[in-house]
Simulated assay, not measured.
Amino acid sequence: MFRLTKSLAVLSAAAMLSAAPAAVLAQEEPGAGTTINMAQATWDTGWFHAEIYKQLFEELGYDVQGPTTLDNPPFYQAVAQGDVDLWVNGWFPLHNTYQSTFEGQAEIIGAVAEGGALEGYLVDKASVEEFDIQSLEDFKRPEVKEAFDRDGDGRADLVACPPGWGCEINIEHHLDAYELRDHVNPIKASYSASMADAVAAYEAGEPIFFYTWTPNWTVNELVPGEDVMWIEVPEVNLPEDMADLADAAVLEGVEGCVADPCKLGFPANDIVPVANSAFLEDNPAAAKLLEVTSIPLQAIFAQNAEMNAGAGSSEDIQNQASTWIEENRDMVDGWLEEARAAAQS
């Protein structure tokens, strides 16, 4: 009897020891066995922080598929339907126009960067001074249109946004609101290629007129206040679903603007994750990570500059993200611990 009891005790202790590593693993990797279908935006300036989030999910044990590159409309439809779980490339209020697509099925959670995403129109500084360009209204003047008309159609060429981007909606609204259709030609080809062409034109001493946002490599390559200037809109006029945000489209202290405060014509945006609500409910660790993680704008600026200088391959972006994580390991570990704790509660 004693031998049997002793044998049972030994077996019980062995079972406890073998179970202990599994329990520890479950605490360290609460996402083990779960797949995240992740998306990312078509603009490459958002891929760095998408990769950071991907690697952090993987540290929690999740198997991350993608990110799959999607335009705004298909992403918001897919996340509402649960065909993808999330992305970290939401721009709000710019993407307010898509809210009716995902409301009740997906939601904004946390913030990659709050209030740091500016948008607006820029002109090379030499042309601002030569033609006294202050706002979009100046592009109705014949001498200005002629200077910026590169294709000979009688209109000033503007590097705008490709179809499907949220900024395309605002730019199209501005062209109508300010009666610019006969004066401005929006170029909607690949943004990166169009901007590379604009940079080459600037370096050749030619006038350039373009839309951009921050964070973006463009403001590293063409520095506001030195190379280019933010110009204003005649008055703030926003699409209907953003009309109540007019005050947020006039900002103080915008470096390199022709005026202060500066009527940029676009509200300052938050860059945010958007995730399927059912996914968040089923994955408290992932939800908490999205809630607490944020990426400093300067880190995004720096990576965008590296990318523009040639380090923009998938491998480069993976390495840039992993380097940033290791350089900020104490902060990152704090986010991961909060996520692990959420899974245990």
Rank of each mutant, 00 (worst) to 15 (best):
P261V: 03
R181L: 12
W324H: 01
T45Q: 11
L56H: 08
A41I: 05
L264T: 13
Y121D: 03
V228F: 00
L180V: 03
N89H: 01
H49T: 09
L122V: 00
S277F: 06
N283G: 11
D241K: 09
Y53E: 14
A117S: 14
I52R: 03
F131W: 03
P207Y: 03
Q99I: 07
I231K: 00
D270L: 10
L4K: 15
A156T: 00
I325F: 01
A126V: 06
A275H: 09
N220I: 04
A268F: 10
E291P: 10
A198Y: 00
A343Q: 01
L118D: 07
A200W: 03
P73L: 02
G256K: 02
A201V: 02
A111N: 08
T214E: 05
L251P: 02
D260E: 02
T293C: 12
T42K: 06
S7R: 15
L11N: 03
Q27M: 04
Q105I: 01
K188E: 12
G205V: 07
V24T: 13
V128W: 00
V223I: 15
F57G: 09
A311C: 01
G66C: 11
T97R: 11
E107W: 03
M229V: 00
S135W: 08
T101W: 15
D151V: 01
I187Y: 10
W87C: 06
D149G: 05
Y121N: 04
N89E: 05
N220S: 15
N89W: 00
K188Q: 13
E28I: 01
R340D: 03
A286C: 07
I109L: 13
D149P: 05
G31W: 02
K6A: 11
P273G: 01
E203W: 05
D197T: 07
A13R: 00
M195N: 05
P162S: 14
M16C: 10
T68F: 11
S277Y: 06
E240G: 15
K145L: 07
A14G: 15
G312P: 11
A278P: 04
V64A: 10
Q40K: 10
G33D: 02
Q65I: 08
F2C: 13
L122M: 08
L4T: 08
V64F: 07
I231E: 00
G312H: 11
T293Y: 04
P74C: 04
T35I: 15
P207E: 05
E137I: 05
S100M: 09
L60G: 08
D316S: 08
G46N: 12
L11R: 07
E221L: 03
Q303H: 09
F279E: 09
E28R: 11
T69P: 11
E28H: 05
N276C: 08
L136K: 10
T35Y: 14
A342Y: 10
E28W: 03
E59H: 11
Y211V: 04
V272M: 12
E172G: 13
E240H: 12
A259Y: 04
E130Q: 03
G90N: 07
S127Q: 02
P67C: 10
E103P: 01
G312D: 15
M195C: 06
D330S: 06
P234T: 05
T293S: 12
S313F: 02
E168Q: 15
L56G: 06
N220C: 05
V250Y: 04
L118K: 14
D44M: 14
K140M: 14
V84A: 13
Q344A: 14
D282S: 10
N283F: 11
P234R: 04
S294R: 12
V254T: 06
E137M: 08
P239F: 09
G82C: 09
I300Q: 12
F131H: 10
